[in-house]
Nucleic acid binder design. Structure first.
Lengths: 207, 207
DNA sequence: AGGAAAAGCGAGCTAATGCTCGCATTATAT
DNA sequence: ATATAATGCGAGCATTAGCTCGCTTTTCCT
């Protein structure tokens, strides 16, 4: 088994200047990942694009993996923010309204930065971020499950965990494939159709 | 180094020998990808594991990517074989029976070699195999669409392409996530439940 | 002001990778 | 038997990656 390189910063940026440096590095990493892929994202290149020296890079990130991990974390946090907000907003709504909102949010979340999403999805296994992403998935699962539990009267009899798994998988997949099959080619009309259909799929399944 | 003169007729030894070499290389690549990941799959290592020299490797594969591409193709062909067979077998069956079969095949396909499946999915973008995989997806889409078309009477009014997209995405996602969330931990009972539920999801949606 | 701590620098080291090329071995054909 | 082609070899080249370390510059604090 190959050992994972460390992903924690070796130094904590305390001053304003250094925080800017860290930001620039993460941002540069994301940009290069999107534009040229993981292979071309060398530490030298990242530092160059960030307008920083390699030496400084290694003051804050012990390895290249740590940089990618930081990008993943930032992106995940952004998405989770949306998901949490949506589920809070939807807590008292009936099934059909709630599912529609969730589907919409899922597609929107994927549309934030499709290419980055794709590259990151590919890189997760090799950054030792699996744990974090699993935690992320578990949180989504828990949130959805909690909502479904509160709406059980509207649903047929069904194992909640299984139902949650099926629904989350289905919604996520449609969002994922929708965005990856021509992100820009997506007319608003098409998005509406897909939201309608996916909502029907899930709601029909639940009740 | 005088060799024994060939007294016995030998078959197309030359062709077979090189074929064996090619096979060994592809097989070794797959094994290393599964065991150690893409990073550790250097051409020298692949040649070594295959019991062949790097020089020979480069006689048959112009680059490392070509090797991975060959593995991808082999794996895809295996899966497509199953999918084609399933859809042929199912052509005259009603919706519920057909969908159930498809879901089962999807899960089985992912269970053939989950780890390889995962690694390959990650490596597709960097091997220039995107085209082939898209072709693969298109074929699945076409096959499913054709089946659905023949069963339209059992279905509600719905855009066939959209319905196909939704169904294929959902089925694929459940299979994918099922296998990736603890492939061995999967009891037969659990698989049955998931097949039941996914079938219900899809059939309920279509009619 | 002035010294200490934080932040930043970048030439260059080490290790590894993809790949080449001249030569050796094995098979086929005459 | 000999020539020719096919197959196989593997040391080593060129390149690039990740990363270190001794040093300078900037900021903070009294």
């Amino acid at each position: 088994m190959a050992r994972q390189p460390p992903t924690k910063p070796r130094k904590n940026a305390s001053q304003e200047r250094s925080r800017a440096t860290v930001d620039a590095l993460v941002e540069a990493t994301a940009r290069i990942l999107v534009r040229d892929g993981f292979e071309k994202a060398s530490t030298n290149r990242i530092a160059e694009v960030a307008g920083v020296s390699v030496g400084s890079l290694y003051q804050y990130f012990p390895s290249k993996e740590a940089l990618v991990a930081a990008v993943i974390e930032r992106h995940n946090e952004e998405i989770m923010g949306n998901v949490r907000a949506a589920l809070a907003e939807v807590a008292d709504l009936p099934l059909d309204k709630a599912v529609r909102k969730l589907v919409t949010v899922a597609i929107e979340a994927h549309r934030i930065n499709p290419k980055l999403h794709r590259v990151l999805a590919e890189q997760i296994p090799r950054t030792g971020q699996l744990k974090d992403v699993e935690a992320f998935n578990r949180e989504v699962h828990t949130l959805v499950r909690t909502y479904l539990e509160s709406r059980r009267k509207e649903m047929r009899k069904v194992d909640l965990d299984v139902a949650t798994f099926i629904c989350v998988s289905a919604i996520e997949a449609v969002a994922h494939n929708t965005v990856l099959n021509g992100a820009e080619m997506l007319s608003e009309k098409m998005v509406k159709v897909l939201v309608d259909e996916t909502t029907r799929l899930v709601v029909g399944y639940l009740r």
